[in-house]
Design a protein around this nucleic acid. Structure first.
Length: 459
RNA sequence: GGCGCGGUGGCAGAGUGGUUAUGCAGCGGACUGCAACUCCGUGUACGCCGGUUCGAUUCCGACCCGCGCCUCCA
């Protein structure tokens, strides 16, 4: 039985999908006006691991992750760049897909875009108005009336009166209540717009997720996820819109990833302390970045730092080192390690605990190799690759992993130097042998001698 | 101020009412020409103060500290 922490109930719950064997999951994706930073990467990787694990456990997972491609910030950025907003969004979507691919994130089942669902959005707003949950204001905007939904605040545990007490002074005059939020925003002259019963305009921020999730997964589904800063107001507002429009319970399990921090502060656009995925991948191998993300629990806060990434790299090397030169066996049945892995992953996707299991496999694999037990080695290598694969790790050829990113020297040059050193060693000319080893080390190549010969890796 | 989360050994990071997390770094040993890799061994860890208990890092309460949300943000 898989247990998942539900933000709504603030505790772990046994996971029971609505339809046995099938999981319907929606995750809030990107608003595409800039490159993805590591915080986005965290969410991408977290829900990628969750999807992989649920599938590993036999569930048929329908994973929807949206793209919000119309929004104030997009329009402003496109305007600054002097380009059509669609040119900006397409460029960012392409970049996002490239980042995902490099981090080993599998494509979601569906990736709906807000601009493809304006009709559904307008229809949902119309229902909300008809039911008395929304109103068209004089300025052409349509607002959701927070007072009309008695459960407002149930996800974020906020009370409406507290929100109103803290409301800023410069509230939009057209709103009946300061906590009301826009479902539809009237277009200013010259702005891109779609027609609607309330005049030309564009969707407000939250409504697209309500419309798209209903369309792709139905009015009630199993899991809804996203980043920590979406809990309020975005997810709270989604609940209000969806439950008022459909009259049904919206989502069973709400999941939120923890924040990525820099110097103990949340990495965020507004603080400007963010690192984009692509700039991080210029410094560290993609799988090291993924390992870093997966090695702590998805709900905990983690600090992005040079030290942490370097350590992640060393640790990942240890796992690949165990696999190096061993051909994994085929059709190895599940055993004790799989059981341990499932036990910890069943507990709210405890990837940190799962890493401990992987190291246990690596340790036993290294012992088998030391003892020359080839059968056992190949079996354990298969287990390690299988369990690593559930986390999206250890799928590369170890040789490729160790030799990736070679710059100063070609492989042929390295091999030639290794052969020269081997000859020097044969002649007991250890001074020359060490000189060659130091020369290689200076160029970032580390040598590992063994009975079978010398292998090398990038340091 | 309101709401929420967290404080674990040098660092990172799981977990548990009594028994080893794990990794990195360090130390000792084996292996090695020497290293590296690997293996074996090695650490008075659980913010502070009370309470419950035969026994608490693990449950309860107070306190201190940190972080997040309350406004756009994954």
């Amino acid at each position: 039985m898989i247990r998942i922490y539900n933000t709504l109930s603030q505790q772990k719950e046994d996971f029971q999908p609505i339809q046995p064997g099938k999981v319907r999951m929606y995750v809030c994706g990107m608003t595409v006006y800039d490159y993805c930073h590591l915080g986005h990467g965290r969410v991408l990787v977290a829900f990628d691991v969750i999807t992989r694990y649920l599938r590993h456990r036999g569930y048929d997972v329908h994973y929807v992750r949206n793209i919000t491609d119309i929004d104030d910030k997009i329009l402003r950025r496109a305007d600054e760049n002097g380009e059509r907003f669609t040119a900006l969004t397409q460029r960012m979507i392409d970049a996002m897909h490239e980042d995902e691919r490099r981090l080993g994130v599998l494509a979601p089942t569906e990736e709906p875009r807000a601009t493809d669902f304006v009709d559904e959005i307008v229809a949902m707003i119309r229902v909300l108005i008809n039911k008395g949950h929304a109103y068209a204001a004089d300025n052409g905007d349509v607002y959701f009336s927070v007072d009309s939904f008695k459960d407002y605040g149930k996800l974020s545990k906020k009370r409406l009166e507290d929100l109103l007490a803290g409301a800023r002074v410069d509230v939009e005059q057209a709103k009946k209540s300061p906590a009301d939020f826009a479902l539809w925003k009237a277009a200013k002259p010259g702005e891109v717009s779609w027609p609607s019963p309330w005049g030309d305009g564009r969707p407000g921020w939250h409504i697209e997720c309500s419309a798209m999730s209903s369309h792709c997964l139905g009015d009630t589904f199993d899991i809804h996820g996203g980043g920590p800063d979406l809990l309020f107001p975005h997810h709270e507002n989604e609940i209000a819109q969806s439950e008022c429009a459909t009259g049904k319970h919206f989502v069973n399990v709400w999941m939120h990833a923890g924040a990525i921090r820099v110097n103990r502060e949340k990495m965020s656009k507004s603080l400007g302390n963010f690192f984009t995925i692509r700039e991080i991948l210029d410094k560290y191998p993609p799988e090291v970045v993924r390992y870093f993300l997966v090695s702590s629990h998805y709900r905990s806060q983690v600090d992005y730092s040079e030290d942490n990434l370097v350590e992640a790299g060393r640790t990942l090397e240890r796992l690949y080192h165990a696999l190096r030169g061993v051909l994994p066996a085929k059709n190895v049945p599940e055993g004790e390690f799989d059981r341990q892995f499932h036990e910890t992953m069943d507990d709210d996707f405890n990837t940190a605990g799962a890493m401990s299991v992987l190291h246990g496999v690596a340790n036993e694999l290294n012992q088998a190799r030391r003892d020359g037990d080839e059968h056992r080695s190949r079996e354990l290598a298969a287990v390690l690759v299988r369990l690593g694969g559930v986390l999206g790790l250890l799928q590369q050829d170890p040789e490729a992993f160790f030799k990736a990113g070679l710059s100063d020297l070609t492989e042929e040059q390295v091999e030639a130097l290794i052969e020269a050193r081997a000859n020097a060693r044969k002649d007991k000319n250890f001074a020359e042998a060490d000189r060659i080893r130091d020369e290689l080390l200076e160029k970032g190549i580390i040598l590992d001698d063994s009975r079978e010969g010398t292998s090398w890796r990038r340091g």
